[in-house]
Design a protein around this nucleic acid. Structure first.
Length: 800
DNA sequence: GAGTTTGAAACT
DNA sequence: CAGTTTCAAACTC
């Protein structure tokens, strides 16, 4: 389907291009060029240039933005929790999957749209490629995701900064329409890209020549942001929208830059490459048009499908959006692109994850932000299709699934798009926590999306939540519910295998998926197609109900949606006791209460989460392979595990252990303290990040389901630690740092009032066992983690 | 695939 | 807060 759909899209694109002229020659492009040149020539432009160092800054700035978006992810990922958001691709994954499976591109989309999409797609693909140091698609995809997350983050940050000014209010309406306004403003302000045709050409050429190669180097050096920029041609693209000196402008600019980043690729490629790509895709014919870009073609060829799909989805979602204004088209592209990117990323990730686990909790956060942005920006597709997502929620889903299983993102490819249920509060809080400024943007965006969604019943299902405060992922609604059970089984199998766990599927019959019994709900995700639930209210359609329920539950237990497993190397110390001994860095928030399972089965949440039992646990006869309540450490656990596992859940436990102790894991987490077993790390990270992102522990934060975190963890759990994991793990540690304090603190402060410990065994729920982290060690660990993470990253590629 | 077991979540 | 019930996942056959 996806292919066909792509073909169709491309055809339409090609047609569109034909109508309007070759893609290369699309009026948009001309406009831009002309506009740029005009700007340059215009007195205003000169004046501005004279006023400030904007010139030099322009490129730099853009590049920075771009960098941060695209690659900075590395540092950010490691260092800040934001990065985690990147991981959160879960949502994306679903999207991607869904997209491909459903060629939603509709012929309905005007030719304009198609052309644009195509351009975007191409661009997107090319970008991804460029990102990919390696040839592997997965990597490439991953990078984009990061970029996206980064972008989102930056945007949010920018917004924060810029939003301080009242003007910022405009931003929030990032909805496409808003965006347009935005763009217009920018264009008015005279931020015209200084770079003209020449640069574009140059960029294009660069892209052609070394899209792949340069990127590697770039990637290797996170610092080399500039380089990165150039290849993308962001400059050219940005050209039109240079940064304004005004904060407002900045905001817009930043956004623009972001968009432009994507768009740029899209534009350049679209203009230049698109035709080729289109042709290729359609008939696989050799590039007749642009012979120049054989290179690009090839690159694009790989990504075309994905891009096309994603684009289609996104585009389809809102054909109406068409921006008459070419200028807007640029933004649109950017916006769409984001959507695409996400989707793409998701797809990629899925692929990657499928192969390996990827997905970082961090991503989740970023994703959330992004999503929110996306939602706002991106028009949601038609209902079932899921494209977009408004936002925030995506990650959650991904995460959520993992949470339970967590283990890995399995995602199986579910295509469903779950959206995180973002509580307004949570989102807001979340954003606040991350970015003070984002909220407005998100809100506005959310609002936009909401409106749109409302307008389109189809879209409603998807995206609403971004805007909505609480929430969670909205799953793409169940697209098709084949045999849920089978799917489930499959998924579980996959999960067990550690391959797929990204998606959660519930089987609720009486809870209406509005209680924590429901994994999806608990994860902050909307139920999706694969779910076999009955009378499900955990759908975008019932967003209000979901949010209310969530609030109620949160009011009861602020940490209800927080990740169950808190990961922290330090956590143990306090409670220390036994747990401290255990190598496991993560601990179950409440602890388990197992009596018959010996904490050796998934009935045990600790075990399920891949963490050892701690003092908080009230289990009887604990034999948790990950660490016994009595204090047996993982190491001991290992030996024990082997024995126990043999008897019981050998495969699972072993896998977990392997992951933990796997060389990769070790490399990543050399420190015993960090012990990041894939599970743990993933889990903890997932949960934490998710919890953070999705659901900030605190009531205020809680908006998003913590469970999402689990999803991420699952992803991490994926077999392929190497790249993805590196990223993730690295991210994870970073997240921990950042997140941990928040989470822990949050948990502690709110719940524990400083009394983190829930000394009473009974007090299962609230007290986060690891509050200690927050106190002091947490920071340390965090720092350590960061350092590790950063260095480790390089290892990924070069590693022996 | 159906049935059982298990423990968390929800309720009283 | 403790006990009981409900629920759905995990598990077994």
């Amino acid at each position: 389907m996806g292919e066909e759909g792509e073909k169709l899209e491309r055809k339409s694109e090609s047609e569109a291009s034909g109508r309007g002229g070759p893609v290369m020659d699309t009026p948009e492009r001309n406009r831009i060029t002309t506009s740029v040149s005009k700007f340059e020539d215009s007195p205003v432009f000169n004046y501005i240039s004279n006023l400030s160092p904007i010139k030099s800054v322009k490129s730099l700035r853009i590049s920075q933005t771009f960098n941060s978006y695209s690659f900075s992810s590395l540092p950010s990922i490691f260092t800040s929790p934001h990065v985690s958001s990147l991981k959160e691709s879960r949502f994306l994954r679903r999207h991607s999957f869904s997209d491909p499976s459903k060629p939603e591109f509709s012929s309905d989309n005007g030719s304009k749209v198609d052309s644009v999409d195509g351009g975007i797609d191409v661009a997107h693909n090319s970008d991804e490629r460029s990102f990919d140091p390696g040839s592997s698609m997965g990597e490439a995809f991953v990078d984009p995701t990061y970029e996206c997350s980064n972008l989102a983050i930056e945007v949010s940050q920018t917004l924060n900064n810029s939003c301080r000014s009242p003007d910022c209010s405009t931003m929030p309406h990032c909805g496409i329409g808003t965006t347009e306004t935005f763009v217009h403003e920018i264009s008015r302000s005279g931020f015209v890209g200084s770079e003209g045709h020449l640069e574009r050409k140059r960029n294009i050429e660069q892209n052609k020549e070394g899209a792949g190669c340069d990127w590697e180097s770039l990637i290797s050096d996170a610092t080399d942001l500039l380089i990165f920029d150039s290849p993308n041609g962001t400059e050219s693209f940005n050209g039109p929208f240079q940064e304004p000196s005004d904060p407002r402008m900045r905001f817009s600019t930043s956004l623009v830059s972001e968009f432009s980043h994507y768009e740029i690729n899209g534009l350049q490629k679209t203009q230049t490459v698109c035709p080729t790509v289109v042709e290729d895709s359609d008939s696989e014919n050799p590039p007749s048009h642009v012979g120049e870009e054989g290179h690009l073609k090839e690159l694009e060829a790989t990504g075309d499908l994905l891009a096309g799909t994603s684009l289609n989805t996104c585009m389809d979602g809102e054909p109406s959006e068409q921006f008459d204004n070419e200028d807007f088209s640029g933004l649109h592209r950017g916006m769409r692109r984001r959507c695409l990117v996400f989707e793409m990323v998701g797809t990629h990730r899925k692929r990657i994850e499928d192969g390996s686990s990827s997905g970082s909790p961090l991503l989740a956060q970023s994703e959330i932000n992004i999503e929110s942005n996306d939602k706002q920006l991106v028009p949601t597709n038609n209902g079932s299709s899921r494209c977009i997502v408004p936002g925030i929620g995506l990650h959650l889903n991904a995460l959520a699934r993992t949470s339970k299983d967590h283990n890995v993102f399995s995602h199986e490819t579910l295509t469903t798009e779950n959206r995180l249920i973002s509580d307004p509060s949570s989102t807001g809080s979340f954003h606040h926590s991350w970015n003070t400024g984002q909220e407005p943007l998100n809100k506005s965006l959310a609002v936009t999306t909401m409106e749109r969604n409302r307008g389109d019943p189809d879209t409603q299902s998807r995206g609403t939540e971004d805007a909505s405060p609480a929430s969670g992922y909205v799953a793409g609604e169940e697209i098709s519910q084949g045999s849920p059970k089978k799917k489930r089984h499959v998924q579980r199998r996959l999960e067990n295998a550690g391959e797929t766990e990204s998606c959660k599927r519930c089987n609720c019959k009486k809870s209406k998926c509005l209680k924590l019994y429901c994994e999806c709900f608990a994860a902050g995700v909307y139920c999706v197609e694969p779910c076999s639930c009955q009378d499900c209210f955990n759908k975008p359609i019932h967003e209000a109900t979901v949010l209310e329920t969530r609030k109620q539950i949160e009011s009861r237990n602020p940490l209800a949606f927080a990740p169950k497993v808190i990961r922290s190397s330090d956590s143990v110390p306090e409670i220390g006791d036994d747990s401290s001994k255990t190598p496991a860095s993560a601990r179950h928030k409440r602890g388990c209460n197992c009596k018959k399972s010996g904490c050796l089965k998934k009935y045990c949440e600790c075990y399920q989460g891949g963490v050892g039992c701690s003092i908080n646990c009230r289990c009887e006869g604990c034999k948790n392979a990950f660490g016994r309540k009595d204090g047996s450490t993982l190491v001991g656990a290992e030996t024990e595990l082997e024995e126990e596992t043999e008897t019981c859940e050998k495969s699972v436990v072993k896998e977990n252990l392997r992951k933990r102790f796997s060389p990769n894991a070790i490399e990543q987490n050399p420190d015993s303290t960090l012990p990041a077993t894939p599970f743990q790390s993933s889990r903890a990270s997932l949960q934490l990040p998710f919890s953070y992102k999705n659901k900030p522990l605190r009531s205020s934060f809680l908006s998003i389901g913590s469970s999402s975190g689990s999803y991420t963890s699952q992803r991490f759990g994926m077999p392929n630690f190497l790249q993805p994991q590196h990223k993730f793990e690295k991210q994870i540690p970073a997240i921990e740092e950042d997140e941990m304090p928040e989470i822990l603190q949050g948990n502690c402060s709110p719940i524990g009032n400083g009394g983190i410990k829930s000394s009473s065994p009974n007090s299962k729920r609230v007290s986060p066992p690891h509050c200690d982290f927050g106190s002091t060690p947490g920071r340390r660990s965090s720092r350590k983690l960061i350092l590790q993470s950063i260095p480790s990253f390089p290892c990924l590629t070069p590693k022996d």
